[in-house]
Simulated scan of single mutants.
Amino acid sequence: MMKTFTLISLVFLASLSPLHAQVSIGIRGGYTLSATQIKNAQGYKSNSIGTSSQLKNLHADLMINVPVYKAIYFQPLVRYITKGAYLRPLPTKPGTLVESANQLTLRYLEVPMNLVVKFPLRMGKIVAGMGPYVAYGLGGSYDLDLMYNGDVLSTNSHSVKFNYKDRGIAPGTQLNRFDAGANISLGIEFNNTMVLGANLSRGFANLDRTSSAKITNSYFSVSLGFLFDREDY
């Protein structure tokens, strides 16, 4: 599946070349705050972005600008990103041992596909847009606490095995490798070819393959980078 996803991405990027002679390419990197929302039938609910559950990490982007019509552009990204969260302990009963994940990290190759509008300024352009994204899970890990009467007895780290019956986040959980959702973006393209951007992403695909819970990703990111050229030069 990874080879298929990579091939599709390469074909997608190659297909952009004939669309317009002034397609521009850039690179960015930055800071990510992510959260993984989990809701199950037992009433467990993890927190979202803006709370203590958010996970801090980095991301890297390949950015492409494709002129569509006047100030409207198609701006896809190829993004390497780590999503996940710090998770609250599962509820425990007195005198029982419980396994509970306290940290989840999931590494993805993600392709946001935004339609953006560029507003000219003296210092450059304001860029605002939105669109869907698809993502392919490369791997991940989780820390699993063994708890007794609410106290942590031991903690072990495990690898996430997509599409495989894994006992990590909750007993019997199976995670889907693919993620999908929508995002909005806002940024500035400076006249010196530097770019600054922010992105808010919300996953709609349920990552739980067993249908026993609803697991979705979300994140907020800030990026800084530069364009190799400008399509309006």
Rank of each mutant, 00 (worst) to 15 (best):
Q22D: 15
P89V: 06
E110R: 01
V78T: 06
L109R: 08
N114T: 09
M123A: 15
A101T: 10
G131L: 03
G84R: 01
F74G: 01
K93T: 14
A60D: 09
L77D: 13
I49T: 02
V111W: 01
Q75F: 06
L87C: 02
I72D: 09
Y31W: 15
K125M: 11
P94F: 09
R79G: 03
A14M: 13
P89D: 06
S52N: 11
S48N: 05
L77F: 06
V68G: 01
L115S: 01
E99K: 14
I64R: 09
I38M: 11
V23W: 00
T105Y: 00
Y108G: 02
I64K: 10
S34I: 02
N114V: 04
L16E: 06
G43V: 11
S48E: 12
L55F: 10
L87R: 04
L121H: 11
G26W: 05
G129L: 01
Q37Y: 06
P132W: 02
P120N: 13
H59E: 09
K118I: 00
A60F: 15
L121Q: 13
S100N: 05
S48R: 06
P89Y: 02
V127T: 13
T32W: 03
M63A: 14
S48T: 10
V23H: 05
L106K: 11
Q42T: 09
S15Q: 04
L90K: 07
H59F: 10
R122D: 09
I27F: 14
A71R: 12
A85I: 04
N102A: 07
L106H: 03
G43Y: 12
A21D: 08
A128M: 14
E110W: 03
V78S: 06
N102Y: 04
L33H: 11
S15E: 04
T82G: 08
Q22C: 07
T36R: 06
L58V: 09
K125C: 00
H59D: 06
P89A: 10
V23D: 05
N47R: 05
N65D: 15
G43T: 08
N47F: 02
F12M: 14
S52E: 13
I25K: 15
F74A: 01
M113A: 15
A21Y: 14
I72R: 00
V78K: 03
V116N: 12
S48A: 12
P18V: 10
Y86N: 11
V116Y: 02
G131A: 07
K45P: 00
M130N: 04
G26A: 12
V111P: 00
S100M: 07
Y133G: 00
Q42H: 07
L58P: 10
H20Q: 11
Y133V: 03
R79P: 00
T105I: 01
L62F: 12
V23T: 14
I25N: 14
L97M: 13
A14W: 10
H20G: 14
H20R: 10
V98G: 09
G43D: 02
L55N: 10
G124D: 07
V127K: 03
A60T: 05
S53T: 06
